[in-house]
Design a protein around this nucleic acid. Structure first.
Lengths: 213, 213
DNA sequence: CCTACCGATCGGTAGG
DNA sequence: CCTACCGATCGGTAGG
């Protein structure tokens, strides 16, 4: 239900800048800054967002950002990391909760596309602001992206092996499946009448069609 | 073969800033500026690109951009407009060249995904820099986007009517079809071994699967 | 967490 | 199409 990665519930007053990438309903200043940055980065993009804008949205002075984060990129990194971790965890849970490739694939597509609708701001940051990370941070996040791909590819591979799926090419098909769900973050708008749940359900079925199941 | 919209082959020396959004292999200064801007906008994004960088790539002084374009956004607009026109023309031709919904859909998916690979820079500008246009320019381009959607939706609608296609929901399915092709611009990298042609062929078949044909 | 501020850069213009 | 430049803004820091 939450977009957050697992957060150690440290009530200890550790003001470390490497703090938890909570993002959920936190009301502490660090969480407010992350939420403000998520909104701004998703709406205007990383470079078009000023640290002053983030600070203002969080109710701080222009320099208030730097009390909690070393750089503007650090804010992007925390959001990107938390988003990737959440997405990976979501896919892994979807697979773990089912026991045939078809059910797993439906669950993956349902949960992944729904997530990109519900959390379309973080989704956009994950998918489109990736290139603005530092080299080190990009490399780290890239590892998570490969894990996400691997989870999906594994389901398709097993479905083909069991004869449940018939596909032309596993890699092509996996990529197209993920594309459908990822692109939701681009076109989703909270104003539209389709709910994230309905989108998830539709994409679960579309995913099965793509593998001939 | 070309990414350009129809260009009046004006050899007349009209140095108008409203000149042709050629983008093809033009070697005139305006074309060089557009190509330089396309590279920079696609690689770093609109806001992260400086007019000085564009000018340098085109071999001009820092202020050289303003000889040909009123603002940095004007450059983005010309690229976005030309890209949308090219994409729309491509889809219309694909439909015109075939005479059953299945063949039309395969052609649409093949050409659209191939185009997003071959012209992934312009594709990224079209899909992801859209929000950086001025209100007027965004409205104008939005009309083209709706026409693009309409071409695809019409093919799906006719396929359902003729019984060739079986889909859950026409709008959902159309959106998912376009998503697959559009997302190519996000992940495509000229370094990979898959060619734009191979991607097009694969996506043509994937599109048919999605409509149960 | 704030005030005050700096150095750098940027889009755009003046005036050839 | 260039040189020279301006006004504004921005990320980040000093020093409380």
């Amino acid at each position: 239900m939450s977009s957050a990665a697992q957060t150690s519930p440290s009530t200890a007053p550790t003001p470390s800048a490497a703090g938890s990438p909570a993002l959920a309903g936190t009301s502490d200043t660090q969480g407010r800054l992350l939420e403000a940055a998520a909104e701004a980065f998703a709406d205007r993009g990383f470079h078009a967002t000023t640290t002053r804008d983030i600070a203002a949205r969080a109710g701080l002075s222009p320099a208030g950002v730097y009390v909690h984060f070393k750089t503007k990129e650090e804010l992007l990194y925390q959001l990107s990391l938390a988003g990737h971790l959440a997405a990976l965890e979501l896919l892994r849970s979807a697979v773990a909760d089912h026991d045939s490739p078809a059910d797993e694939l439906r669950a993956i597509m349902t949960t992944f596309s729904r997530w990109h609708a519900e959390h379309y701001r973080v989704g956009r940051i994950v998918q489109y602001e990736f290139g603005n990370l530092t080299d080190e941070h990009r490399d780290e996040v890239l590892r998570l992206r490969k894990e996400i791909d691997a989870v999906a590819r594994d389901v398709v591979t097993r479905g083909v092996a069991s004869g449940e799926f018939v596909v032309g090419d596993v890699a092509d098909t996996t990529l197209a499946l993920l594309s459908m769900a990822i692109d939701v973050a681009r076109w989703y708008d909270p104003e539209i009448r389709r709910t994230p749940e309905a989108i998830g359900a539709a994409y679960g079925e579309l995913g099965l069609r793509l593998v001939g199941a």
